[in-house]
Structure formats: structure tokens, C-alpha cells
Design a protein around this nucleic acid. Sequence first.
RNA 1: UCCGCGGUAGCUCAAUGGCAGAGCAUGCGGCUGUUAACCGCAGGGUUGUAGGUUCGAGCCCUACCCGCGGAGCCA
Length: 432
Amino acid sequence: MRPTVYIKDLKNHVGEEVTLKGWLYNKRSSGKLKFLILRDGTGYIQCVVFKGNVSEEIFDSADKLTQESSFEVKGKVKAEPRSVGGYELDVTDMKTVAISHEYPITPKEHGIEFLIDNRHLWVRSKRQVAILKIRARIVKAIRDFFDSRGFTLFDPPIITPNACEGTSTLFEMDYFDLGKAYLTQSGQLYVESGAMALGKVYSFGPTFRAEKSKTRRHLTEFWMVEPEMAFYNLDDDMDLAEEFLEYIVQTVLAECKEELKELERDTTKLEKVVRPFPRISYDEAVEILKKNGINFEWGNDLGGTDETVISGQYDRPVMVHRYPAEVKAFYMKRDPENLKVALAVDVLAPEGYGEIIGGSQREDDLDLLLSRIKEHNLPQSFFEWYLDLRRFGSVPHSGFGLGLERTVSWICGLEHLREAIPFPRMIYRNTP
RNA sequence: UCCGCGGUAGCUCAAUGGCAGAGCAUGCGGCUGUUAACCGCAGGGUUGUAGGUUCGAGCCCUACCCGCGGAGCCA
């Protein structure tokens, strides 16, 4: 039997008698009075059990409920300023569904390691519920954004025969009689074929990196959204990325007020995320680093601390474009005005959250792409299908990838990426 | 792979080389307005593992195991 009413809807039932179903979040008692905090996934409400209002049996059953026990409760809804949330339930009847064993996550603080070990239970806590709701809303905002702008969803394969960009370490597996296969590190090359078929496409799915990155900004399995657009140059690409990020942030601000409050997120920082975003070249970024006393050599990629210094100059995401071609992937187009740099862009989130978007205009010239593949010592046979995209009606095109968990982490103001996904996968952890 | 930090009750932590403790959680008792409620009582320990120094090691030394943070790499 389904619940008759969910906690989030109680404001429409003041004065009525309703039945709620859920779990015991916490309990306090004061002799003949018991306060049961019920949670049902939509909210929390204090249920008051007064000894004079219920049978002895029911009063005792309220006493026996342990933290996270499941139960049904019937009572009258009333507005109550003394209660957190503003509403309260005067209990007339209740039924225990299951008494919980001793619950490991107590109301006191816990260490991160213990909480991750109990991730399957930790997701019940207020903070985690708020984060997961915001994540779900961000995912919807991403889909809404592209679906309403003429993009078609285009799903690349997850099992691939080779390293997409030839740089990262991948998860390897035996694939029947065909030798080794790998879990994808990016749908990038495949969505390019989609853009040639459908004009504007995006993929949204899990991505895998086997690098032994041991930081709060890395997971081995994460979700990435990758739009790819035919006839877009780098400026068009940046225009889209900018509009995209503004849309996501402003949507969450408008629709997840309660959750952001639960996370104690400083929303004034998010309110500033409106177009236009600053756009600086890699050369200008290097100047900023030098002005801040950082010894940085032209030609290197930006490190974590470099990114923090650069993004610290601005109150909104900053787009750094035209990186040295040497440090970027083989498929990125060189700038015709300066062949040493690639038409690439990284978007750095504010408040030290680092790179959340990486994108570029792609090399559309067959001969140049061929020579890049040779320079990078990549097996040409694996890329013949990709080269076909240049053989058969090549056009200028661009795209980018946005890391979902880094975006969730930034918008929620998290310390660590592992809270941004239900079950994080890291180099020394694949459980629960 | 490298650098740094850590491992004590179910959890979070304390303990000058000298009797291993507190809070929370659990159990029992008390309280008609609690807000991580409070008050009283009780149970709960191979101090990561293996050696070593010492009259005596949670603490000092050596090795190993595990974890966390950072670097590199990246979203």
C-alpha cells in the first residue's frame, strides 16, 4: 500500500488527519511525551506522541523504535513554530514496519573513511540527500538545455578497441577472440561522426580513467556530457559553453533553494555566474601567473595550483583558450594565426574547483590529421573510420566535455568529488 | 611512482615511557515541549601487523599492511 501523503506536501493538509510512512531519523523523549523525527525521502517532520492520546501499546512501540526503524504513523497535521520545518504531526496511531538493527551512522560526527564504507546508508543523511537531489536536477538541466536547442542525443560505445586520445591509462579487458578492449575515456571521436550525421549532438554517460590519480578531484568512473557541433568554430564553442554553464547554475539556484540551504552554500557566489565569462588566452594566463610570482615556463600545461591562481582573479568561470599544441590532444586544430597553439579551451570554475570543461575546434583537414596521428605514434588502422569523417565531406566542427561530478561538486560547494556521485569509484576503493 | 600525515571501544577522539579514558551509539531507569535534548546506572578494548629497546611501550626504534592528503595526469 502506497503512502497517502508525502512530507513535502503536508502544507496542503494542515488540520487533516494523514498517514505517513518512512524511517526514524532521530528520537527524543520527555516522560509522557515522545518526539519522533520521521523522514520519507521528501522531507522531515516531527511526530509528537503524547501518552494521553494513544494506547499504552502504541506509546511503548514508539519507545522501542530505534534510529532508522521503518514505521507508519497516523495523525493530525498542524502548523507548529516550535518544530523544525514549521509543521508537526499529533500522533493518534502508528505501526512499526521493521525495527532497525543498531545503526552505524549516529547523530554525532564521523570520519570520511567510515562514511564511505557505509555509503549505502550514508545516502540517507540530510546532506547527502540534498546533494543527490541537486545532482539529479543538474542532469535534467543538462538534458533540457541540449534537447531544447536542436541537439540530438547520440550514445557512443563504452567498450572501445583503442585509447581515444592515446594519452590516458585505460581499464583493459579481454574481448573474446579480438584481443584487448578498453573502457572508454571519452566519447569524443564517436560523437564527431554523430555531428556529421545530425548536425548537433551530445552524449551523456559514464567515462573511465585508470590513472592512479589520488586527489579530491578525481574518480576512476565519472559522468561526462559531450556536445559536438558541425560548422562551429572555437568562438561558437565558447559561446555555447558559457550559455550552458549559466543555464545549469541559474536553474539550480532557482529550483534547489532548500537543498543549497541545507548544504550552507554561499549562493551569492553562484548568482554571479552570468554571461559573459572572461576569456583569456594561454599567453595571458601565463602573464597572470608570473605577476603572482609563480615560476611558469611557456609550453607547460596548467597545474592544479596554477588553475586556482588564475580562477582566483575572477568571480565567474574563466575560459582559457589557445594552449600550446604540444600539451593537447592530436585531434585539436591548430590556430592558423599561430601554429604553435591549438584551438582549445578549458573552462576553470571559480572558488578553486578547477577544470570543469575541456573543449576544442577539431582538426578537419585529412592530411594534417594524418600527420598528427603519426607524430603521436598512434596506430593509424584504428583511426581509419575517424579519418573517413574528413574524407567524406569534412566541415569545421567543435565540441567540449563537461565533468558532471566536478560541476556538482562546485555548485554544492563540496570538499571532495566522492560526495557528488552515489557510489564513488577511486583507485583504492570499488565498494560498496 | 614520489612526498607528507595518520591507524586506540561500533563511531569521533584523549591518554609526560608508569592503573587505557570521555562523548555519541546500545541496554535499563527518570522527566509533558525536546531541537546533535537532558539526568542516573550498565555492558563494551589482541591500542593496524611482526619484531626490537626498556624494570615497564598506545607512546621510542625497524620492517610491513591499510587509509587519507598532495604531486604527476586529467573532467
